[in-house]
């Protein structure tokens, strides 16, 4: 793992992955959206509004996946003091926050025709909202602490505390109120969703993930380069403004 602690080596690896990730993003996004919006069947109950699922469900998956990225990079940063792990959380968090917001917005737009309301305080929507709050807190802590290394370690601790607490919050919110339909893809006895709908759903899930890889690598490179610049500037004794969020 420490082989890629060298930023130059990481940049070379990222440059090798990036064209492939971009290609996969574009292809799966075009194919997936075509299937989702035109070629897939309508739901016998929900009609065409079921198509909201194809953009909503992968976004919700990504919201959780990116939090996993934060937690893993937090763990690696604290245990092995891996320098890239310290910044990978910073690179990933805004992407995760946007996916979470996307899940909330598309879910609310989907809720209007389905439940007759934009917002229901049901278990799942509420726990995604809490996840969004977590992302906001995580990013605010990154901005609040000036020293980059300290900020990286503090956010790592926060991410790990979140890993313990998010399942508890999710469970308690679901206990509190449940109106949402039960999960129908991630089930042990196999998916209950029809294959014609599953194909666009999974294609778009791949598209979202590849998109994440692209933006994540870009942001990592940006962060590394920014640090290089400020190290050089420090040597030259000039102040440089940081642009990374």
């Amino acid at each position: 793992m420490h082989r890629f602690a060298n930023p130059a080596q990481f940049n070379r690896l990222a440059d090798k992955i990036l064209p492939w990730a971009i290609a996969i993003t574009v292809i799966t996004l075009v194919v997936g959206l075509y299937y989702a919006l035109f070629a897939s069947p309508e739901d016998y109950q929900q009609g065409s509004s079921v198509r909201m699922m194809y953009v909503h469900v992968p976004a919700a998956w990504m919201a959780m996946f990116v939090y996993g990225v934060l937690a893993v990079s937090g763990f690696v940063a604290l245990v092995w003091k891996h320098p890239l792990a310290l910044i990978s959380g910073k690179a990933a968090a805004p992407i995760g926050a946007v996916f979470t917001l996307l899940a909330l917005i598309t879910g609310s737009l989907w809720g209007k025709p389905m439940w007759g309301t934009y917002w229901e305080w049901d278990g799942r929507m509420t726990s995604v909202l809490v996840l969004f709050f977590f992302y906001l807190g995580y990013m605010a802590l990154w901005q609040g602490i000036e020293d980059e290394d300290k900020a990286g370690k503090a956010t790592s601790i926060l991410a790990l505390v979140g890993v313990v607490n998010l399942p508890i919050i999710k469970f308690s919110v679901e206990w509190w109120n449940t109106l949402h339909q039960p999960a129908s893809v991630m089930r042990l006895d196999g998916p209950t969703i029809h294959t014609d709908m599953l194909i666009p759903l999974l294609t778009l899930a791949v598209a979202y993930k590849a998109y994440f890889v692209v933006v994540f690598l870009w942001r990592m490179k940006l962060e590394i380069n920014e640090r290089k610049i400020s190290a050089l500037a420090q040597a030259a004794n000039v102040k440089v403004h940081h642009y990374g969020g």
Partner: peptide, 10 residues
């Protein structure tokens, strides 16, 4: 508050 309030929900 931003960090702690979500933890208070349960």
């Amino acid at each position: 508050s931003l960090l702690v309030l979500p933890l208070y929900i349960p």
